[in-house]
Design a binder for these strands. Structure first.
Length: 535
RNA sequence: GGCUGUGUAGCUCAGUUGGUUAGAGCAGCCGGCUCAUACCCGGUAUGUCGAGGGUUCGACUCCCCCUACAGCCA
């Protein structure tokens, strides 16, 4: 029986079209999912959109269309971005889908019945102009709307609440028993110190002040308010409380399935406090891990449409290819911390890691095999020269490290290991100096061994990089003359696999970029939206 | 204001439980090679390890205080 793995992205709020920041998070998840799948894990990868709420209702009204029409439009821009970035999600959940609506309503009923949800009233500072509530701290001592600056008034409306307080001890105990539940750990301290220790407030889970939401069956003037709706996507997509819940049985109920939610810092609280509680209420298992990823920032701060500093993924993909963009996202920002997008770093990454390192290794190896052995990869005969053994060992060690780091979700580090191997191979060429061996007929066996080793390392590197290189890894395997069956992950590290293969010379894997020119080009992409915003 | 975290070479960062000359990548400089996408390889400089105090035979690593920055505060 193969091991199971379920990974989710946050469900995105389609109030505006997505940018490179959205692509960052989803791409990282995709790389993890593809990596697990490649290694034989029974993997399920979910992404989706969170389509309810007042803001969507307002945006639709402003455009003179229905909320459903509005989200249908924006969601298309998300799914086409996922197509362009080659996201391999197994499903796409939309909270407006019938399957999700039903599950949420049934969950609400269950919790109501159990007494975990109760009717009370929501009190807050209400701004009539913005039609929204603010908290005491948000309105400040002057009691002014933080959005429009108008005076707010204290108002209440009937609302259902989820009784968090009764589970806060359970939650602390859960954290203690599952020390890796929240990554990075500093986020856990934040949650404990700011919310749990001072006493958890019950969570408002319904509203009557707007309509664009899932109606509460028992009390239809209420719609389910944000988190009970949104978080549920992770199980509604699997069929929880639906006719066909086979996926749910497979990827949620099976205790051997590892479940990982990747989230942004802004929604940590909901995923690490309320979500485990909701599940506990329903008598369901909790996820293994909530991974809080960092942000891809711009020089002037957070990337966002409204700030006018967001950069689109499309022109980058079109000009540099999807592999380069994916590689940049994985390599540049260590998964879990923030990073800054700059044209200089983008071009540098592509040139150094892709063109000079792996691309050039392939190119020079292919050329030498053609030149010295008429394009046939020589037979692998173990360690012929003293330089061979260390490269062979490094290759095997890299596979081990790669797998271990991947399983810890140290994505950036795991691929850095592969790049280290590629660097080692380049050094190995330098040290063994095949051009010198070629001039000495008595060194023929050594020369053969060098080529055999390089070919094997190229296959292994290409394979390990395949979750990122959705098109280029195939090119590497093509160059090595490999059949489809030979490209399986099981062959990674199996020296001798490529004996006698016929090499195919191809165009450079990643063309080297003209630094100045490309930096200027990318900078022009970054400037464009700002001008638009100013106009 | 409260809580948490960070501050190490020009840049991005590693530094396990305190222990010999503080590391990597990139940029810089010098040199080598030619199979290769002017690539690749080797060598090399620079650091009061944010400031100050303390514990210790010995602290980047522990304690105190100060400072700058960041995150969170429903």
């Amino acid at each position: 029986m193969s091991k199971k793995f379920y990974i989710t992205t946050p469900i995105y709020y389609p109030s505006a079209s997505p940018h490179l920041g959205h692509a960052y998070c989803t791409t990282l998840c995709d790389v993890i999912a593809r990596g697990k799948r490649m290694r034989g894990f029974d993997t399920y990868f979910l992404t989706g959109t969170d389509e309810h709420g007042e803001k969507i209702e307002d945006n639709a009204k402003a455009k003179g269309i229905t909320p459903q029409q509005f989200v249908d439009g924006v969601v298309k821009s998300f799914s086409s971005l996922w197509e362009a970035t080659k996201i391999s999600n197994d499903d796409f959940i939309r909270t407006t889908q019938e399957r999700h609506v039903k599950t949420v309503q049934r969950i609400f009923s269950k919790m109501l019945e159990k007494g975990d949800i109760y009717l009370s009233s929501y009190t807050g500072w209400y701004c009539v102009h913005e039609e929204s509530y603010w908290t005491e701290t948000q309105v400040g001592p002057e009691h002014l709307c933080p959005e429009c600056g108008r005076p707010v008034e204290k108002k209440d409306e009937p609302a259902y609440f989820y009784a968090c307080s009764k589970y806060s001890d359970w939650l602390l105990d859960f954290y203690a028993k599952n020390p890796n539940f929240i990554t990075p750990e500093s986020r856990k301290n934040e949650m404990i110190n700011t919310f749990i220790k001072p006493g958890l407030l019950d969570l408002c889970v319904s509203r009557t002040s707007f309509d664009w939401g899932i109606p509460v069956n028992e009390d239809p003037k209420h719609v389910v308010y944000v988190w009970l709706d949104a978080l549920t996507n992770y199980i509604s997509a699997l069929g929880y409380l639906q006719d066909d819940d086979s996926k749910f049985k497979e990827f949620w109920e099976d205790p051997d399935c590892e479940i990982v939610h990747v989230v942004g810092a802004d929604i940590t609280r909901f995923h690490t406090i309320y979500w485990p509680m909701f599940l506990h209420s329903l008598g369901l298992r909790e996820p293994n891990r909530v991974f809080v990823h960092g942000l891809l920032m711009m020089k002037d701060g957070k990337m966002s449409k409204s700030r006018g500093n967001a950069i689109s993924a499309y022109p980058l993909i079109e000009r540099y290819g999807v592999d380069a963009v994916r590689y940049y996202l994985v390599a540049e920002v260590p998964f879990g911390s923030d990073g800054t997008f700059t044209p200089e770093q983008f071009v540098m990454r592509v040139n150094q890691d892709l063109a000079n390192n792996i691309g050039n290794l392939l190119n020079r190896t292919v050329s030498m095999i053609i030149k010295y052995f008429d394009g046939v990869i020589p037979e692998y005969k173990g360690s012929v020269s003293p330089l061979d053994g260390p490269l062979h060992d490094k290759c095997l060690q890299t596979i081990k490290d790669y797998e271990a780091l991947s399983d810890e979700l140290k994505v950036t580090e795991s691929y850095e290991k592969v790049m280290d191997l590629v660097r080692a191979a380049n050094k190995y060429i330098e040290d063994s100096a095949p051009w010198a061996l070629a001039k000495d007929e008595s060194k023929r066996a050594e020369l053969q061994s060098v080529m055999a080793h390089l070919a094997e390392v190229l296959f292994t590197s290409g394979k390990l990089l395949e979750p990122i290189f959705v098109t280029k890894s195939e090119k590497i395997f093509d160059s090595l003359g490999m059949s489809q069956e030979e490209r399986s992950y099981e062959n990674v590290g199996k020296f001798g696999l490529l004996n006698g293969h016929i090499i195919n010379k191809q165009a450079p894997l990643f063309p080297r970029l003209d630094e100045q020119k490309e930096i200027e080009y990318i900078a022009s992409l970054m400037a464009a939206p700002k001008e638009k915003a100013a106009a």
